[in-house]
Amino acid sequence: MSHETRLAELGITLPEVAAPVAAYVPAVRTGNYIYTSGQLPFTAGTLPATGKVGEGDGLVSPDDAQVYARTCALNALAAVRSVTGSLDAIARVIKVVGFVASDPAFTGQPAVINGASSVLGEIFGDAGVHARSAVGVTVLPLDSPVELELVVELV
Rank of each mutant, 00 (worst) to 15 (best):
D103N: 11
L77Y: 04
A65V: 03
E4Y: 09
E4F: 10
L7A: 07
S102K: 10
G108Y: 04
Y24R: 12
Q109H: 13
V152W: 03
G58D: 08
C72W: 03
A49W: 07
A19S: 13
V80Y: 06
L87F: 04
S37M: 14
I12D: 03
I123C: 02
V146C: 03
S117A: 15
A134S: 15
I12G: 03
G108W: 04
L154W: 01
Y35S: 13
S133L: 14
S117H: 11
G38R: 15
R29M: 05
G125S: 10
A101S: 12
G128M: 08
P104M: 10
A19Y: 00
G85K: 08
Q109R: 11
A69T: 00
L40I: 07
T138R: 13
Q66I: 08
I94T: 14
V21R: 15
A65E: 08
L10S: 10
R70F: 00
L59N: 08
P141I: 08
I12A: 02
V25S: 10
S82Q: 00
V21T: 15
L120D: 06
P110N: 01
I94L: 13
D64N: 15
A44F: 12
L142K: 11
D143H: 09
G98S: 03
S118P: 05
L140R: 00
L7D: 03
R81W: 05
A105I: 10
P145L: 05
T84M: 07
L7F: 04
E122S: 13
G51L: 05
A22R: 14
G38V: 15
T43P: 00
L40V: 04
E9S: 12
S37Y: 13
T43D: 11
S86T: 14
A116I: 05
D63R: 14
I123H: 06
H3M: 11
Y68S: 01
R70V: 05
I12V: 12
Y24D: 12
F106P: 01
G128V: 06
S37E: 15
A73C: 02
T30A: 12
V151H: 00
P41A: 07
P20Q: 11
K95T: 15
V80M: 05
V60D: 01
V112I: 08
G128D: 07
T50Y: 03
A111G: 11
V96P: 00
E122R: 13
D57E: 15
A44P: 00
A116H: 04
L142Q: 14
I94R: 14
E9M: 11
G11I: 07
T36E: 03
N75K: 07
P41S: 09
S118Q: 15
Q66F: 07
L74W: 02
T30E: 12
D57S: 15
L87D: 06
V129F: 11
L7I: 10
I123M: 04
G51N: 08
G56V: 08
L77H: 03
A134R: 10
A89G: 04
T13Y: 02
T71V: 11
F42E: 08
A76W: 02
V96H: 01
A73Y: 01
V96M: 09
G121I: 01
E55W: 13
Y24V: 09
S102A: 15
P15C: 06
T30R: 11
A76C: 07
G31T: 05
P62M: 04
G108C: 05
G98W: 06
V112D: 10
N32F: 12
V137T: 10
S82E: 09
G115D: 04
